[in-house]
Amino acid sequence: MREIPAAAITDAIAKLAVEATHYLPADVEGAIRAARATEKSPLAVQVIDEILENAEIARERMLPLCQDTGTAVVHVELGQEVHVSGGYVVDAINEGIRRGYAEGYLRKSIAARPFSARTNTGDNTPGVIHFEIVPGDELKLMFMPKGGGCENMSRYQNFLPGMGRKAVIDFVCETVDLAGGNPCPPLIIGVGIGGTAEKAMTIAKHALFRPVGSRHGDAEAAELEDELFAAVNALGVGPQAVGGTTTALDVFVETHPTHITSLPVAVSMQCHSARTRQAVL
């Protein structure tokens, strides 16, 4: 058993919130730079140049990459040998969000009472927090400030079991086509296949933590990732939907065994400001 003080979790989350919203991850920036070299539309290249310049300015002037500093999505991998002391882990995470969003001059974008008053909670809490119990005595915090533009374009559908991979590819392409410029392409696309409705969406979202350029360990899933990546980039949507050959920076597939009657497919999209940051305690 290893003790981790709740205060250490709060400190770590506050730091992650500020860093994630200001520093574009190196793999994402690298992928955008690589896309610039292959992009066929001159207008799209200008859009990409502005995106790259923005990342530089954000770093240097400590300005958030995007004004939408998002819903604070936190995925926690909690080692089963860990004991959190001195407070409830969820409170500790929300306190970290509160502090990070205040100290970092981040936008507070959370509305309480979603179908009625929609009053701003004023401190960007509560976060959307997922826990996974894992072996070991470490606690891993995975932070994703998730913008509304791309989150609102998420999509789920269950297909007939026999429809197979074609249904998946058609659904992902249709989702990207319908979303157009709203989710701020070039995108990173998470596709969750199988499980139940909530499982499919959870694994689709979790896939967005994967490094750009990585491929699934399962050969069949990796092949589907390659095929989806090519299919999406053939749509011509392009950066900010001005038309172009760079619609996605990558596509990640995650799967889970499913019921004999089901073929759940969930699509979760991340904008080019694909902000994630992790810490291990």
Binding site: K40, S41, M153, A241, G243, G244
Partner: peptide, 18 residues
Amino acid sequence: EGRKQFRTSDRPIPAGQA
């Protein structure tokens, strides 16, 4: 116009928006 110009896919562009 941009999407039509750079589209190499033979999928029809779905009508409407999300």
